[in-house]
Amino acid sequence: MGIDILNLLWNIFIGAGSGAGITFLLRAYFNEKIKNSVKHEYDIRIESYKSELKNVIDKDLESYKSNIKELELKNLDKWRIKREACLEALNLADSAMSNMDWNGDMKNGIVKSEIDTINVRNCYNQLACSCDLPETLSEFKRVLGLLGPINGDTIVDFRNAIRKELNFGEEIDVDREKAFIGRIHGDVR
């Protein structure tokens, strides 16, 4: 009987050990299964959030690009209007200066041309609405003689103000002595 008890104890011990081993293995299996299930659910949610975020970002990016394109077109339109107004202002300034009586050598070479106050006002309005720099307007007034007496080199400051307004770079007209072309040799107009 001593052996039967020992066998019984041994079987109980083996059974308990096996049960503990099976319990450990089952616990490890289910823990791993739960971790994998949670990881899988987490991965699905992360991918869903990534997809939603990408869609929002793509939509915002397209909207941003569209706004930038629209702004670029508006700026291009504004620049074209500004350029046309500046070129018209230069033409009007030349006409105004051509009609002025100059002291000195230029008096005999003045070419009289028509200048219309309405055209000057329209041009001034276009400059005022499209230009960014106050010097452009003040130099336009000055070259027309509205701010006091002028001389032939006044056009240099106006040309350079327009170059600056149109972002055409540095001043290039530095010859103040022969800045305004009053006549070409042989021109009798």
Rank of each mutant, 00 (worst) to 15 (best):
G21F: 14
A93Q: 03
F13P: 05
A28Q: 14
N55H: 13
V188L: 15
L61P: 08
E70T: 02
K112N: 08
V120K: 07
Y64F: 14
G17Q: 11
E70R: 01
N119D: 12
A20F: 14
N75C: 02
W10G: 14
F158W: 05
D175A: 04
D94C: 06
G21E: 08
D105Y: 11
W102H: 04
C129I: 07
N125F: 14
L6S: 11
Q126Y: 04
L127A: 06
A93L: 08
I12L: 15
E32F: 11
G182Y: 09
N11Y: 15
K74M: 00
L144C: 04
S98Q: 11
R176H: 10
Y64E: 12
L76Y: 00
K164N: 14
E88D: 00
K82C: 08
L73Y: 00
N167Q: 14
S130R: 00
F30Q: 07
L76M: 01
A128G: 03
N108G: 15
L9I: 12
R183Q: 11
N91E: 06
L8R: 12
D175S: 03
F140I: 03
L25G: 10
V143R: 01
A128F: 02
G169V: 02
I162C: 03
L92A: 06
L92H: 05
S138P: 09
E171N: 14
V111A: 10
D94I: 14
L90A: 03
S98L: 05
N103W: 03
V156M: 06
A89I: 02
D187G: 10
K35W: 05
M1L: 11
L133T: 11
K33Q: 13
L8A: 10
D187Q: 15
H185L: 15
I162W: 08
A85Q: 00
S138K: 13
D77M: 00
N7A: 15
R80P: 00
E62G: 14
K112M: 04
K178V: 02
N11L: 15
N119Y: 07
E165I: 01
K141E: 06
I150N: 02
L53R: 13
L53E: 07
L9A: 10
L73R: 00
G19C: 10
R27P: 01
K107N: 06
I172E: 11
K59F: 11
I181K: 09
L133D: 10
T154R: 14
N99P: 12
R189H: 08
M97I: 05
